[in-house]
């Protein structure tokens, strides 16, 4: 029974045996210090350049305190029905936008997947288009679609769909690329065409994963759908920005509360659905 761990008195012996482990490591420390001071330096530069001033900040925070006090108690006043309708519209925008995006992105994502499309150029172009679409925020798409189909929730649906096509295209094609090649070989050995290969070898493998990603995006789209009303593309955001503009703070807090509750409910329901979809895949 020899002890396997070094006794404290062995430290000197260990120090001579492994000098590098006990070396002070100035170079690493200097590099870390340089990195940290660069990060902090840029932060301080940013704070100065963006015009943070302590007095304005203190004033703003005290004003925020007043606003917070006026927010209680939250009340809808006469507008309960209008708010509920707008909230339903927000949910509709999120649902239809997500579904439209999934339907459009599903066929396109195969074009960007390495194991489906052999041509390098086509794949590269599809991927870059997805990147470009994702680079533009939903609110910008909302503004553009307002120019195309006019003010209202329809522009919101298209905006949510557009920015999600980019996200889904990337996620779907990555999921397709991780699909196992074995079923593909099996299906190909029967003389199947490209379409049959995709339908019977790849789609069954990736469908549960794709569905759970779509549900996840539905959850996050509810958050974006609450704000596209700010630029006039339908939903509760319009009322939120109007009430802030009119300084009806008790209505503002009521709307925020409504949004929080809705998001919590949808998260719970869709989280359960997602787990059951992924669980079904793990069991079979």
């Amino acid at each position: 029974m020899k002890p396997r761990i070094a006794e404290p008195c062995d430290i000197d012996r260990l120090r001579t045996a492994y000098p590098s482990a006990f070396a002070p490591g100035y170079a690493r420390r200097a590099a870390a210090l340089a990195g940290i001071s660069a990060v902090v330096g840029l932060f301080i530069f940013g704070v100065v350049w963006l015009g943070f001033s302590p007095s304005a900040l203190v004033q703003g925070i005290s004003k925020l305190g007043v606003i917070l006090k006026l927010m209680f108690p939250p009340t809808a006043g006469q507008h309960m029905l209008v708010y509920l309708q707008a909230l339903a519209q927000t949910l509709s925008i999120a649902l239809l936008g997500t579904m439209l995006a999934a339907l459009v992105a599903f066929p396109l994502s195969f074009l960007a997947a390495r194991n489906v499309v052999g041509r390098w150029l086509l794949r590269f172009l599809t991927k870059r288009v997805f990147d470009a679409i994702r680079g533009i925020d939903t609110l910008v798409w909302a503004l553009i679609f307002i120019n195309v189909v006019g003010l209202g929730p329809f522009a919101g649906i298209l905006a949510v769909a557009m920015s999600d096509v980019g996200a889904f295209g990337k996620l779907f094609s990555e999921a397709i690329e991780t699909a196992s090649p074995k079923p593909v070989e099996g299906v190909l050995s029967t003389g199947a065409s490209k379409i049959q290969e995709v339908r019977f070898a790849i789609v069954p493998q990736v469908l549960p994963l794709l569905l759970s990603q779509v549900l996840y995006y539905f959850e996050s789209n509810i958050r974006s759908a609450t704000v596209i009303g700010i630029v006039g593309a339908g939903g509760i955001g319009l009322y939120l920005s109007n009430e802030i503009g009119q300084q009806s703070w008790d209505h503002v807090s009521f709307i925020i509360l409504m949004i929080l509750i809705t998001v919590a409910i949808i998260d719970a329901v869709s989280g359960r659905l997602r787990r059951s979809i992924i669980g079904a895949q793990a069991r079979s």
Binding site: Q85, Q89, L91, S92, L96, G152, P153
Partner: peptide, 11 residues
């Protein structure tokens, strides 16, 4: 759900 949403979303 989609039909209800289309109605409420003024599709």
């Amino acid at each position: 759900c989609v039909l209800a949403a289309s109605w409420s979303g003024e599709v």
